[in-house]
């Protein structure tokens, strides 16, 4: 009996240790983010530029959406968004951001909410950025079900159902991570990507491939351009006080 009790106590202790039940040092409270930007607007500069696609862009593939009749729009052939090239050869949906060079600067969390809409069985926008702690609202605008499944590596994974139109899911990412994929397992063609950063210097290239990083303090930065299928490229850029610099990236198909 005593032996059984001993084994029980040992197991309980082991379980408590495994579950983190032992005494641990209380984590130091995180310093709250500042409420004002540390950047002096009088000396801030901008980095603008264009993302080009070199060569012949791949032909977009028609997405078969007939597994859910609610997604099918008669007479409309929806194509994938893997490589979207504009008329001038500009590459859309490239996430451009300052990867390095901001030092220990800390930035306020924007109060504006970022909307990720599920519309026509597609994520809108396909690529976007958010700051750590910023509110991201995922909305179901469709007359069908979606599951919102974020598959990060550094942040917490989540998967939530939205069976009815108008349903919303609010999320705030806790750690910087480029990129966090969103997917809908009901409609496997639905993909979106969010770049989560601890600063506001990011942009997504528009239909003509242009982008702009505004309000950067003078300094030397590593700027990275990320594309979901074409990979990443980086460039160093130095901007002086109130200077505007232009840079460009050129992606080409891997095959």
């Amino acid at each position: 009996m005593i032996r059984l009790f001993g084994i029980g106590v040992a197991l309980a202790a082991l379980t408590a240790a495994a579950c983190g039940g032992g005494q641990t040092e209380p984590a130091a409270p995180a310093t709250p983010p500042p409420t004002v930007s540390p950047v002096d607007p009088a000396t801030a500069g901008n980095v603008t530029g264009k993302i080009a696609f070199e060569g012949t862009p791949p032909k977009p593939t028609v997405v078969r959406m007939d597994s859910d009749p609610n997604c099918v729009q008669p007479g409309v052939a929806t194509t994938d968004e893997l490589v979207t090239v504009g008329e001038g050869g500009g590459l859309q949906n490239v996430f451009v951001y300052v990867k390095d060079g901001l030092g220990n600067l800390r930035f306020p969390i924007p109060s504006e909410t970022i909307l990720l809409d599920q519309k026509g069985c597609h994520y809108v926008p396909h690529v976007f950025g958010a700051q750590v702690g910023q509110t991201v609202e995922v909305l179901n605008s469709d007359q069908t079900l979606h599951n919102v499944h974020a598959v990060p590596t550094a942040n917490q994974e989540f998967n939530t159902g939205q069976p009815l139109a108008g349903m919303k899911h609010v999320h705030r990412f806790s750690t910087k991570e480029v990129m966090v994929p969103f997917k809908c397992d009901v409609h496997p063609w639905m993909r979106a990507f969010v770049g989560v950063l601890d600063h506001p210097y990011f942009a997504v290239s528009t239909a003509d491939g242009t982008f702009s990083l505004k309000g950067l303090p003078p300094g030397t930065y590593t700027v990275e351009a990320w594309h979901e299928t074409l990979g990443t490229q980086t460039q160093m850029v130095t901007i002086g006080a109130s200077e505007n610099k232009e840079i460009s990236f050129a992606f080409k198909s891997a095959t």
């Binding site: 079900l145 599951n147 499944h149 998967n159 939530t160 159902g161 069976p163 809908c184 397992d185 009901v186 496997p188």
Partner: peptide, 17 residues
């Protein structure tokens, strides 16, 4: 095979039903 394992995110309910 269809990658549908997480298309119903809740269990034992199904989208709350």
């Amino acid at each position: 095979s269809t990658g549908s394992g997480l298309s119903v995110p809740d269990w034992p309910t199904t989208y709350g039903w």
